[in-house]
Nucleic acid binder design. Structure first.
Length: 620
DNA sequence: AAAAAAC
């Protein structure tokens, strides 16, 4: 039995026909209303008469061509929380399916949220008196954010915001944001959240560790809260999530799920994760209990779709994390199948958001298949690394790598970092190489573990836990751990084997230097890495790193190539949205680039990641 | 060539 909020509402109302495959009308796209102008007049808003739906299942409340109104309800106190709904959001009349409103009015009589585990592990009431004050900003290196270039292109780009308070996310979500100790939005959040709330498709590039997960989760959660009236079809054992978040690894999906659970605590929005390598039955049970946001890896999702246990028919929000990876050769067919060949609403009907730190031009081109009149957002140069990471490259022959690593680890032992064990993440090229190096490290007195695709999911998760806890402060990893994983206290990333792709390098070193903290990245370079010399030297130079003279010499000899994102000799700006590249000018009109506006914002000095010290979460 | 992602 599905007990998701919206399902419950749906159950109490008449069945609706969503049987045909006609594109759903999209009430959101025609007009952009800046966040600060929305929800201005709760008192003027017509009281919702109950779940009124058009044939496609969208709420017909208020707005017409707008998003359904917020705060249209009245008197919607939530008995179990004791907090008044304050005119915001989805509380109030209409919720109960015309039966007098209120939360406990559904058949069954109990509120599922009472059983919701507190993901914050506390039960204290959060301070709601002063919201988002800026007094918790210690530990953040604001200077590092001072001159991050921000570029947007596309039609009618919604302006950025400076604070969470000025974004109308709703009180419950705001409270969760406070519980997460997020004080101010990070640069990517400042720009992406208004764009997403405006209903626009988005291709967002932002540096590793800059808070991308929240940037797409907040708008999805608040959007679903505003539309809880939506009715979903009832087909035996099939569930109809409203949002789908895809990521390339199981651990990353887990992490996104954990974060989304915190953000959606007590909102009534249900988040479920599905990935391979774990028993499917438990995931099926979770799904049957109701799902609004499904976080998944592609393989398991396809399985669920083929079993008809999940339908994408009601998807309103699609987010691809690490989107360039999701669309590269290995994943693209699966993604196309999910997005284009199942029952997902077409682009322009759903809202699609792509996020990554890197976005090669050819992948941008591919990605535009999934987007509709989208906004391109770049915070920092696409594919650049953050200045917070000190990058070193050392020339190390293959045979010397182990002893060289040993030297680094010995040197590091002396660096005690206030209480918390400093963690070292070592990247290697192959799964076998990972096992071998782990074994050798352990034999030599360095507690290490390893994570790669040949290990069972249980082993992978155990390795990650053991590393995070400091029990084994060295983790040897393949590229499975290169992207997105937010592991606090990673002080050092060692590229024992360099990747062939500079973008992979960017993601790997991005496991340190997160949330405004500094980090160190050391790479072992030798003749086997010649093709990386030029892009690596350019990247390091861009990031104001010291480039060894020998690397510069290699780079000058290396053939031009591997330069997917950067224009040689180009300034720090421009040419990052592929629609604006000269060679694609014939496409400009098609993509609406002909009359597109481009705005570049200098970033004010005081707005870095306003997060309390020690608090990092899923940022990428 | 390797890695990831379903059973």
């Amino acid at each position: 039995m599905r007990t998701s909020w919206a399902d419950s509402v749906a159950n109490s109302a008449s069945e609706i026909a969503v049987a045909d495959n006609n594109p759903l009308p999209r009430p959101t796209r025609s007009t952009y209303v800046p966040p600060h102008l929305r929800n201005r007049t709760a008192s003027e808003a017509p009281t919702l008469p109950g779940p009124v739906t058009d044939r496609a299942g969208f709420s017909a409340a208020a707005g017409g061509s707008q998003w359904p109104r917020w705060g249209g309800g009245s008197g919607g106190n939530k008995p179990e929380s004791g907090r008044p709904a304050q005119g915001y959001g989805y509380a109030g009349a209409g919720r109960g399916g015309g039966g007098g409103g209120g939360w406990n009015n559904r058949s069954g009589g109990w509120d599922r949220r009472e059983r919701e585990v507190n993901p914050f592990g506390d039960d204290e009431e959060v301070d709601t008196e002063h919201s988002f004050n800026e007094h918790e900003n210690s530990g953040i290196n604001f200077d590092a954010y001072e001159d991050i270039p921000v570029e947007t292109s596309g039609d009618n780009v919604p302006p950025p915001v400076n604070t969470f308070a000025e974004i109308d996310l709703g009180e419950v979500l705001n409270q969760n944001i406070r519980r997460c100790k997020y004080v101010k939005p990070t640069p990517v959040q400042r720009h992406a959240i208004p764009i997403a709330l405006g209903g626009r498709d988005l291709m967002a590039c932002a540096q590793t560790g800059s808070g991308k997960t929240a940037a797409f989760c907040f708008p999805i959660i608040s959007g679903i809260m505003r539309e809880q009236y939506v009715q979903r079809p009832r087909v035996a054992r099939t569930v109809y999530p409203l949002a789908l978040i895809l990521s390339p690894t199981r651990e990353l999906s887990c992490q996104i799920h954990d974060e989304a659970k915190k953000f959606s605590y007590q909102t009534g929005v249900k988040v479920v994760v599905a990935y391979g390598g774990a028993p499917i039955n438990q995931q099926l049970r979770e799904l049957e209990r109701g799902v609004d946001i499904l976080v998944a890896t592609p393989g398991r999702l396809v399985d669920l779709l083929e079993r008809a246990r999940v339908s994408l028919q009601m998807i309103r929000y699609l987010a691809l994390d690490e989107a360039d990876r999701m669309l590269d050769m290995g994943f693209e067919p699966q993604i196309r199948k999910i997005v284009e060949q199942m029952d997902m609403p077409t682009r322009g009907v759903r809202q699609t958001m792509l996020f990554s730190a890197t976005f090669p031009r050819e992948i941008q081109r591919l990605a535009s298949d999934f987007l509709s009149n989208y906004i391109f957002l770049a915070v920092g140069r696409v594919g650049s690394s953050t200045d917070l990471i000190v990058q070193r490259v050392e020339f190390v022959q293959e045979t010397d790598k182990r002893s060289h690593l040993m030297d680094l680890l010995h040197a590091q032992r002396e660096n005690g970092i206030h209480g918390k064990q400093a963690l070292t993440l070592v990247f290697v090229e192959t799964k076998k190489g990972a096992d071998a190096l782990e074994h050798w490290l352990c034999m030599n007195g360095f507690p290490a573990t390893t994570i790669h695709g040949d290990r069972t999911q249980q082993e992978r998760e155990m390795a990650l836990r053991s590393f995070k806890s400091g029990k084994t402060p060295i983790l040897v990893a393949t590229d499975v751990a290169a992207r997105g994983l937010d592991i606090p206290h990673v002080a050092h990333v060692v590229n024992f084997d360099l990747p062939n792709d500079i973008d992979d390098y960017v993601h790997r070193i991005g496991r340190t230097g997160r949330a405004g903290k500094s980090g160190l990245a050391t790479a072992f370079f030798n003749e086997g890495n010649l093709s990386l010399s030029r892009p690596l030297a350019e990247l390091m130079q861009e990031a104001n790193q010291e480039v060894p003279a020998w690397l510069t010499r290699y780079a000058s000899r290396a053939p031009y190539g591997g330069n997917k994102n950067r224009r040689s000799g180009g300034g720090r700006f421009g040419g990052r949205d592929f629609r604006r590249e000269g060679s694609f000018s014939r496409n400009l009109d098609y993509y609406g680039g002909g009359n597109s506006s481009t705005a570049a914002y200098g970033v004010p000095g005081n707005y870095g990641g306003g997060y309390a010290p020690g608090v990092t979460s899923a940022w990428d």
